[in-house]
Design a protein around this nucleic acid. Structure first.
Length: 288
DNA sequence: AACTGACCCAACCGCAGCCCC
DNA sequence: CGGGGCTGCGGTTGGGTCAGT
């Protein structure tokens, strides 16, 4: 059953305002957040003098009142990106919205359900008739993402090795004993050339695309050669490591949390950059 | 002008994961 | 380690708007 016995949940719906927000409520919420900042949503309605649930306040702020929200129609570029990201990520609206500056997950979701799904269904022919938000699980081509796992979790460190692994790399691996040496991937070089600042951010974040120095804490446990042998891999398989899980995964078996959180942490959202990343086809956690 | 159905989108609901005690 | 509280996510709903008749 629901967790309806918890205080925060039981408060909801008991004499609280519901439905559309008034201008006065908007003003109160905006003023409060401008002064105190976001967060502690359960306290917000009481302290801001609103007869709303914390959830409702959060939603109103994030989806409507936030100053950085982009108004206006979805552009063609944005639409293209949404389609491609949806193909990649499925109904992970918050992740998709994270790639579209100023757009909210709710907006993307609504746009998909009302406009894009219909448009794509029309384009793909009369055989695909299912509603996009259907719960049945029988998704059509449009709605079937390439991701392996639908639910994202969190992880702090992701290290990516990208193919091809050269014989040289193997030699280095052997010489480095239990330490897998991460060669600077083609991806990273290409990425660095075009987006030096983004790579800088990347290197300062929890996500690491390359660099042998990153692995010292795992060197007792990791042995790339054994890993490849164990899984019967050739040198063309992309491999990623979740540093928190202390293990390697094949990209094809990689759980999505590693993919998406790595993705999210690498760079700040930018349309050109995101498009480039997807166009490159080199992002090892993306299957095209 | 009135009605109706389609459409849009803000808001709600239920759930699950994370964090903290 | 387990439980409670908080937060964020995705699915769904329902009211407002618009276009067609």
């Amino acid at each position: 059953m629901r967790r309806s016995t918890t205080p925060s949940c039981s408060r909801e719906g008991e004499g609280l305002n519901k439905g559309a927000w008034t201008a006065q409520e908007d003003k109160l919420l905006t003023c409060y957040i401008m002064v105190h900042g976001e967060g502690k949503w359960t306290h917000v309605p009481i302290r801001a003098g609103l007869n709303r649930s914390g959830k409702s306040c959060r939603l109103r702020w994030l989806n409507y009142l936030r100053p950085d929200i982009k108004r206006g129609n979805i552009t063609q570029d944005e639409e293209d990106l949404i389609i491609r990201l949806h193909k990649l990520l499925g109904n992970r609206w918050s992740l998709i919205a994270g790639r579209l500056p100023g757009r909210t997950d709710n907006e993307i979701k609504n746009y998909w359900n009302t406009t894009l799904a219909k448009k794509l269904r029309t384009q793909s022919g009369p055989t695909s008739e299912q509603h996009p938000s259907s719960k049945s699980g029988e998704s059509d081509e449009i709605n079937r993402p390439l991701v392996i796992q639908k639910k994202a979790g969190r992880c702090k460190n992701v290290v990516i090795q990208h193919p091809p692994y050269s014989e040289e790399t193997s030699t280095i691996n052997s010489q480095a004993s239990n330490q897998l040496v991460f060669e600077e991937a083609h991806l990273t070089r290409q990425f660095t050339d075009q987006f030096p600042q983004a790579v800088g951010e990347c290197q300062n974040s929890d996500v690491n695309l390359s660099g042998p120095e990153r692995n010292d804490e795992f060197q007792d446990e990791l042995n790339a050669v054994d890993f490849f042998r164990e899984f019967g891999l050739d040198n063309s398989m992309p491999v990623a490591m979740d540093a928190q899980a202390d293990e390697f995964s094949l990209i094809d078996e990689l759980v999505d949390c590693r993919i998406t959180d790595g993705f999210r942490n690498v760079v700040s959202a930018d349309l050109d950059l995101t498009t480039f990343m997807m166009d490159s086809g080199d992002w090892p956690w993306i299957r095209f």
